[in-house]
Structure formats: structure tokens, C-alpha cells
Amino acid sequence: MDAIFNFQVITDNFTYFMIGRFPHGPLGGLGLTIYLAVVSCILSFFGGLVLGLLSLVRNPFISYPVNLFINAVRGLPLLMVIFWMYFLLPALMGRTVPESQTVIMGLTLFTSAYMSQIVRAGIEGIPPGQTEAAISTGLKHWQVMLYIVLPQGLRNMIPSFVNQFVSLIKDTSLAFIVGVSELTHVATQVNNRTMAYPTEIFIFIAVLYFFLCYAFTSLSRWLEQRLAWRKAI
């Protein structure tokens, strides 16, 4: 009997796994996975920052609805959030929205809600004495936040941000369900076409995802240690 596994299917379609129909068509495969994760990560950093700061505002008319929103998003499956974006975005924007943007917005909204919690924890981790001291030097509240608290808080948040990025890379696989041809979608396409090598194909992309995510998980741990060490001296 032949070998159980036949990884020929991977080498035959390697370019397709990496970049999809590019350059004759849109970017796909691993390239699109990274693109989706990076763009959503940058956007959700700002989204998380804004939501996190707003949730700490002392005016309850602002903080209450913001917290409610954050909790609602965190209470939903990402898949649901993406489906909602599918419906809502065209209505809100008044124009049609390509699927890849729908997914980016879904991922951004979802991840922002989680990032806001990191931002919040980071800010609350700065001793209140610093704020009091800064205010007594005559700085305004927003200046204290911008110049004193945030820069320190953000530095402590970096490892958690990197962890969120890893989650994002994994979450981009859901784009498959709305037909965006990122890595998982491309894999099912090849699987559908060949119909004989599901084991090989899914092991291959699992390993691909693993290396990508593990690299960033390790980065996050290294940063965590470095920051802890800096604080120690």
C-alpha cells in the first residue's frame, strides 16, 4: 500500500495557499490572513483605546452606555458579530461594503471590546498617587491622562496587545464563512477540488497558523519578562 499521507497536494497548490489568485486577482491565502489580522489589529488598538477611556469617564451618561456596549459585544460569538456587520454596514454607510471590509469591521468591533478591557486594566494599574501629584502641579485631567498615565499604562499593555493579535490571527479564519478567501477558505477550496486529502490539507494549515501564532505568543512572553525586569530596577 502507498504511504498513508500524500503531501503532493500541498506542493501543487503552494502558491495558491500563500497568495491566492494574486496577482491576476485579489490577494488570498496566508497573505490575506496576515493582511486582515494586521489591519484589524491597528484599528482595534484605537477602538479599544477610545472605548477603554470612555468607559472610565466619570459621567455615567457616557460610561454606562459604553460599558453596556462593550459587555454586549463580549457576550456574542464573533460569528454573530460578523453576520451583524453584514447586515448593518451597508445600512449605516449607505453604500455596499466588500466582504473583506465587512470582516475587518467585525473583527475590529469584536477585538476593540476586548482591547478596551486591557486599556482599562492598564490605566487602573497606574498608582492614583501619580494622578494626584500631576494634578497638584496644575495639569488638567486630560493632560494627566495623555502625558502621565497613558504612556506608562500603554507600555504595560504591550504584551496583552500582542496576545490579542494572536487571537486576531486565529479569528480571521471565520472570514471563511462569509466567503473571504483567506487561508482557511483557500484550504477548503483546494479540499473541495481534490476531495481526497482533507487530513494533509488541514494539518498543513494548522501548522502554518501555529508557527505564525506561536511566534507572536513568544514575542509577548519575552516582552512581558523584559518589562517586568525593567520595572524591577
Binding site: L88, P90, A91, M93, G94, R95, T96
Partner: peptide, 8 residues
Amino acid sequence: VLGKAALA
């Protein structure tokens, strides 16, 4: 909000 979906 969805009610306004018809506007798109």
C-alpha cells in the same frame, strides 16, 4: 437601526 437598513 436595522429598520433603516432599507435606506441602503
